[in-house]
């Protein structure tokens, strides 16, 4: 594991791999992974902790929720829903979970149209 004189890294040990791939990275709730269209209303909730210079800690607790109507059974036809928040302007470590109103109403509208 010791670094070579050139400063180039050694190959990864299993411990280093485990530290990352079992504890870090994108997590998707099992229900979102197995839900098939037409069975239930699917809600995709994203917790945003994107590291960017100087902003990592600031939005460590910034949580956005986006609801997606899937009852119509034809999600492909629904327009993509965009998050309304930007982490660059939300330095709010203690702000509780919040929902993005526009996204929700947009989803509802689309659901209504689809029906």
């Amino acid at each position: 594991m010791s670094v070579a004189a050139s400063g180039r890294p050694s190959s990864e040990s299993l411990a280093e791999i485990v530290d990352r791939i079992l504890d870090k990275g994108l997590v998707v709730d099992v229900w979102a992974r197995v839900s098939v269209v037409g069975i239930e209303i699917l809600t995709v909730e994203a917790r945003i902790v994107v590291a960017s210079v100087d902003t990592f800690l600031h939005y460590a607790k910034n949580i956005s929720t986006l609801e997606i109507a899937s009852q119509s059974g034809d999600l492909e036809d629904l327009q993509n829903l965009e998050f309304g928040s930007s982490p660059m302007v939300q330095p709010a470590p203690d702000v509780p979970d919040h929902r993005i109103g526009e996204a929700e109403s947009e989803a509802e509208e689309q659901e209504a149209e689809a029906q």
Partner: peptide, 23 residues
């Protein structure tokens, strides 16, 4: 000090996203 230098890794420690379902 012993230096342990590893990588390159995918940016695991800089991306923390959870996508869930509100049931």
């Amino acid at each position: 000090l012993i230096t342990q230098y590893t990588g390159p890794w995918a940016p695991y420690n800089f991306v923390d996203l959870e996508i869930g379902v509100d049931r």
